[in-house]
């Protein structure tokens, strides 16, 4: 039961590892960004899960309701989502410019081109 009760956190760990693996193992810049996104998303889920209370409702003032979820982690993660979107945008913009400068978004190709006219 213990393991099942931590279902969200297992998913967080799984997503995080998949994301990190893609970032490390993939040579394609776009795929790297996808991996990075996955990695960040897992942290979003971590924060969101953290705010949940068993049986809790939405944190709105209602007569007779005393058990509600903690809204703070949700607010925090809104900020982090914005940061994630900005990072993705900058990363993709860089990938576009790399493509126009090198004609490729494969890391190996880029390294080779740098090597061949390295100084």
């Amino acid at each position: 039961m213990e393991a099942l009760g931590h279902f969200n956190y297992w998913m967080v760990v799984l997503l995080m590892m998949i994301g990190l693996y893609v970032v490390i193992a993939s040579g394609n810049l776009i795929k790297k960004i996808v991996g990075l996104n996955l990695f960040q998303t897992s942290v979003f889920i971590l924060y969101i899960s953290m705010g949940k209370r068993a049986g809790g409702t939405a944190p709105i003032l209602v007569e007779g309701v005393v058990n509600y979820s903690n809204p703070l982690p949700h607010v925090l993660i809104l900020t982090a989502i914005v940061v994630g979107v900005a990072t993705t945008a900058v990363g993709l913009a860089l990938a576009v410019r790399i493509y126009s400068a090198y004609g490729s978004i494969e890391e190996a190709d880029i390294a080779e081109q740098d090597q061949s006219n390295s100084d």
Partner: peptide, 11 residues
């Protein structure tokens, strides 16, 4: 090369 350096740093 500044572009790939920036990308690397971003990741």
């Amino acid at each position: 090369r500044a572009l790939s350096a920036a990308f690397h740093y971003l990741v």
